[in-house]
């Protein structure tokens, strides 16, 4: 019996070391490891970049994790990531927290993004003003009839509160950019943990309204044209309308590093701003920065 147990243990150890040996012999110099975490809006983009960059630089490894902008920034504050992705600007408190831990966050603008407001294709509503969207999400408007649609209840969909998109939407749409405004999402707003959840629900539910980064919106849901105010033209989100600033809900996307980047991280961030990397931005439905 004794022998069998030790055999079992031996096999375990062997497997473990075999796998370890396999992976380390696979690449030439595995020393450069970049840990990249944060915004779910950016995660696809960051993955595409990481993949392309590693294709060209075999010595670098980049691990990309989602979880939300707050998650990435929290990890940066706790010192557990090299680069935090964020779809919103870092907050004052977060900078203070980071400094308390001896970390100075440095901001890098990496791309731009438009937030699309989406509904089910069956929904006849295709244009809304910012004010109407704000009233829908704050709970003042509860039926599609009130904005020119059918007599249906409105089901509000939002990302979870740790999403940078959520915070940006709250500040830019619900509060219309006003700092004093303390409007909140209606309590019965559905907080879905993923972009996919929002799109799946909008796809099958004619009552639903949702929002998401333009790069994530598939063709089988309807994107709403938005006017800044009553009387302004209704504009659909696109790279062009973001660039000429006619589409009102667009924002910069950021990467944050702990202190000025050095070494492999610096090279990576410089590469991200290159035309090659910015071309990927366009391919994924985001807006490149010039």
């Amino acid at each position: 019996m004794n022998i069998r147990w030790s055999h079992l243990l031996f096999v375990f150890c062997f497997l473990l070391s075999a796998c370890g040996a396999d992976s380390s012999s696979g690449s030439t110099s595995p020393a450069l490891y970049i840990e990249n975490k944060g915004s779910d809006t950016i995660v696809n983009l960051a993955l595409a970049w990481a993949e392309r960059y590693q294709g060209e630089h075999a010595e670098v490894r980049i691990s990309v994790t989602g979880g939300g902008s707050g998650t990435g920034l929290a990890a940066l504050i706790n010192g557990t990531v090299d680069i935090a992705n964020s779809s919103r600007k870092i907050k004052e408190e977060e900078i203070a927290d980071a400094q308390a831990n001896g970390i100075q966050p440095v901001e890098h603008t990496i791309a731009r993004d438009a937030i699309a407001v989406i509904v089910n294709p069956e929904n006849p509503v295709s244009e809304l003003t910012l004010q109407q969207i704000a009233d829908i999400y704050s709970g003042k408007i509860n039926n599609w009839r009130e904005v020119g649609g059918e007599d249906r209840p409105i089901v509000r969909l939002s990302r979870e509160t740790n999403s940078g998109t959520h915070v940006y939407f709250l500040e830019t749409v619900l509060r219309l950019g006003s700092k004093e405004d303390k409007t909140l999402f209606a309590t019965n707003t559905l907080l879905l943990p993923s972009s996919e959840g929002i799109i799946a629900e909008v796809r099958q539910n004619p009552n639903a309204i949702g929002y998401d980064g333009l790069g994530y919106v598939p063709s089988d849901v309807k994107t709403i044209a938005i006017a800044k105010a009553e009387g302004d033209p209704f504009v659909l989100p696109s790279a062009a309308t973001v660039d000429d600033k006619t589409y009102p809900i667009a924002r910069d996307l950021y990467m944050y590093t702990a202190g000025e980047p050095i070494g492999a991280i610096k090279d990576y961030l410089e590469w991200i701003l290159s035309p090659e990397a910015q071309n990927i931005v366009l391919e994924l439905g985001f807006v490149p920065i010039k």
């Binding site: 929290a74 927290d97 979870e160 509160t161 740790n162």
Partner: peptide
Amino acid sequence: FAPARTMTATIAAEMGEVASGS
């Protein structure tokens, strides 16, 4: 028959976001 939020889902959804000690 309305949406609801549970304690467990709240922890799972939000724990990753917060800075430890907040």
